[in-house]
């Protein structure tokens, strides 16, 4: 019994290094001035985030913000009285709303895992565009490219969590899978379908009626 008592004390000492518990013990025993450093292990960092900053997720959140604004402007363009495509307007507004929510959720997840958000971490995987006044087919192509860029980056981030660093942080991987990989697959597939449909419809003698009908279909289906 005594042996186990001593053993457990020894174990407690051996494993106690860099835990919040020892920080708090030290802080309370020495009656120090209030100092955050004394509690440096009292945080939400564990698994992958114990050693790594979530830089990729920071830039991913920033990418989502930027792309959300792009979609907002693309959507607005289709709302002007000359272009007048309410279906396209609705589709891109929906993407804009979703990317915005994704950005906020990513920021929340970063902080959940003990990280901080850095708005200056610019995403290298996506180049901002200056021309968002696109015709119907070009806009679909652009939207498809954007969604694929987001999906590919999510796959890359996922693989760094699971393979490259050998950290195997299932919690982080699951978050990416559920919040990004699944909805992105749907968006990519939908856009690929729209693009092909519209391209085939444009071979018609009078494409303006085809586009009108396709836009009406988009509006009703969303």
């Amino acid at each position: 019994m005594l042996f186990f008592g001593i053993l457990s004390i020894l174990l407690a000492v051996a494993f106690a290094k860099d835990t919040c518990y020892t920080d708090v013990g030290a802080a309370c025993n020495s009656l120090p001035k209030l100092d955050r450093e004394l509690m440096s292990n009292c945080n939400a960092k564990y698994g992958y985030t114990k050693k790594h900053h979530l830089v990729d997720l920071q830039s991913y959140a920033n990418a989502n913000i930027g792309i959300s604004f792009e979609f907002l402007l693309m959507s607005s363009y289709f709302g002007n009285y000359e272009d007048q495509r309410e279906g396209f307007k609705k589709l891109y507004r929906k993407f804009s709303d979703e990317m915005w929510e994704d950005a906020i959720n990513t920021i929340k997840y970063i902080t959940k895992r003990g990280g901080t958000m850095n708005f200056n971490e610019s995403p290298s995987f996506v180049k901002p565009t200056n021309v968002l006044e696109l015709n119907e087919l070009n806009s679909l192509a652009k939207a498809l490219d954007r969604q694929k860029q987001l999906a590919n980056e999510a796959l890359r981030i996922h693989s760094t969590f699971t393979q490259i660093n050998k950290e195997d942080d299932a919690a982080l991987a699951h978050y990416i899978e559920e919040k990004f990989l699944e909805p992105q697959a749907d968006r990519v597939r939908d856009l690929a379908g729209y693009t092909n449909d519209l391209k085939n419809l444009l071979t018609d003698d009078d494409p303006s009626v085809s586009i009108f009908l396709f836009d009406e279909y988009l509006k009703k289906s969303l």
Binding site: F69, L73, S76, D83, N130
Partner: peptide
């Protein structure tokens, strides 16, 4: 906004 949405942001 018929031809200049890109410049809004």
């Amino acid at each position: 906004l018929t031809d200049d949405v890109s410049k809004l942001l």
